[in-house]
Simulated assay, not measured.
Amino acid sequence: MENYTRQTLLQKIKSTQDEDSWNEFIEIYRPYIYVIIKNLGVRPVEIEDHVQSTLVICWQKLPDFNYDPDKGRFRYWLSRIAKFTVNNHIRKHSRRSELDKKLELPTSLPPDIEAISDREWKVFISKKAWQNIKDGLSENSRLCFEALMKGESFDIIAERLSIPKNTISVNKKRVEEKMFKEIQRLQREIG
């Protein structure tokens, strides 16, 4: 799939309602929207409905949306739509107090959506970077880094993989450099 910068992708969606561009938008931003909604305290069985509602609102609003990086980050706009969707659902159902008790809806949402947005973006972009680089690594590099991410000690990794500890350090440094570069690339393209 051809990579577009976020602004180019947004422009294509706005001007043509191109289905391929919309599918690419969903592929890139859907996992992020999901974690934002999850962090708003939504019950697990309702998260998917809120994700779909958020995507529908994005689809409706994107043709009129004018992205200006000086006014804020695009992910904040997505986060605000997700928060609006959840708040709207809560308001609608809070009118019926009986239903509120049955659904156990959260009565309030975290006030700082930007802080949640930033935290979840870092997790999202790190996972995406790892998915992008891991297949290009040597097996030892990948296994070392995965073990380190799980909290395994150098001694355990060295014994299990039959490699010296300094090789683990070298692999770790190389993978960290690749991760850093990939995270920077992703931040430029979709961040």
Rank of each mutant, 00 (worst) to 15 (best):
Y4N: 13
T5Q: 08
I13C: 14
K14I: 02
Q17N: 13
E19I: 03
D20T: 05
D20F: 01
N23H: 11
Y32T: 04
I33A: 14
I33K: 09
I36G: 02
K38W: 08
G41E: 09
G41P: 03
V42F: 07
V45Q: 14
V56K: 15
I57G: 01
I57Q: 13
C58M: 14
C58W: 08
C58P: 01
Q60Y: 08
L62Q: 10
P63I: 13
P63H: 15
P63C: 15
D64C: 06
D64L: 09
D68W: 00
K71I: 00
R73E: 11
F74M: 06
R75C: 02
R75F: 00
F84T: 08
N88P: 00
S94L: 06
K101T: 03
L103G: 01
L103M: 12
P110A: 10
I113P: 01
A115M: 03
I116S: 05
D118M: 02
E120A: 02
S126C: 05
A129K: 07
I133D: 04
K134T: 07
L137E: 03
C144A: 11
E146A: 11
K150V: 00
S153W: 06
R160Q: 10
S162M: 07
I168T: 06
E176F: 05
K181L: 12
E182K: 15
I183V: 14
I183S: 09
R185V: 04
R185E: 07
R188Q: 12
E189L: 15
